[in-house]
Amino acid sequence: MDELKNEVTTQDVDPEVSVPTEPQTQTGDALTQGVMHERDMKKETKKQDVMKILGKIGVYLFLSVMAFIVVFPFLWMIATSLKHLSEYYDSNLDLVLFPGGPRDFHNFAEVFTETDLGRYFINTLIVGVASTFMSLIITVLSAFALSRLKFKGQNAFFAGLLATMMIPGELFTITNYKTVADLGWTNQFGDGGWFNAFLTLTLPFLVSVFYIYLLKQNFMQIPNELYLAAKVDGTTDLKYLWKVMIPLALPTLISITILKMMGAWNTYMWPKLTTTNQDFYLITIGLREAFSSADNQQPDIPLQMAAVTLVSIPLFLVFIFLRKYIMRGVSRSGIKG
């Protein structure tokens, strides 16, 4: 019986593989080898499982460490903003984020009494909301014209628009600074001063080529039949835009709104150049100016951190509640603000 089986196996074996010379003992060996092999595999899988778990632990460890490094500046900022000045300069407490003793928010209160940050918050809010609103209107109208209407010179115009995206913004800033000065908008004192400041801070950035492009692409995905159907139904272009296209492109519009608002919140260079009246400072420049002339003795870093925290909180709130839109907008744009 065994011999027969063996014969069959030897016949099955590829002729190029060396045929065993002693068929009688081969059977038993082969059997035990097979079992051995099976055991090896089990051991191997077990080993692999252990390695896998170790690998997973390693990955999580790596991510946790990196995540800690990434959030640490924020943690430290908040912790320090809650410290008293004496606690900050106590060398024993350098590494202690939250020392014992009562925590309070007196630094935050001081930010509003010691500096003009409150006023700057309001300035930024006004400029941000107004410029975002106007910018959205311009963006929507332009994207609509470029995506839905057909008119002569359209393609040439769009190509020219895209070409301007290649040029670094600094190149525009120089002439714009001059333009604004020539127009007298840098004269920000007296009666019309606030209006000059407002124009200076909003107008040059109302047209964002990139957002027009983004929205145009989004509008193009809306099937043309919807537009034709609306036309047959007697809808005007503007009504179609308002009732159909805007609701359908709402996610993109929200992304644009948030990024635009964040941009206004974070902008530094342009207002720094053009704001001549301190009363019209925006938040970022106000923050930098308020703490740039620190005294040598003991700069009030907890107070500074309280101010920084205050500036950062709105951004965090927006991020927490609208993360989806921000991340979607950013992954498609790659520009900040």
């Binding site: 099937p223 039949e225 919807l226 034709l228 159907a229 036309k231 047959v232 139904d233 007697g234 809808t235 159909v244 609701p247 359908l248």
Partner: peptide, 20 residues
Amino acid sequence: LAPENRGIGLVFQNYALYPH
């Protein structure tokens, strides 16, 4: 005459219903 003034109803191949 513009389409909206002709008094026509049009059904499109892909229906063109407003998705929202």
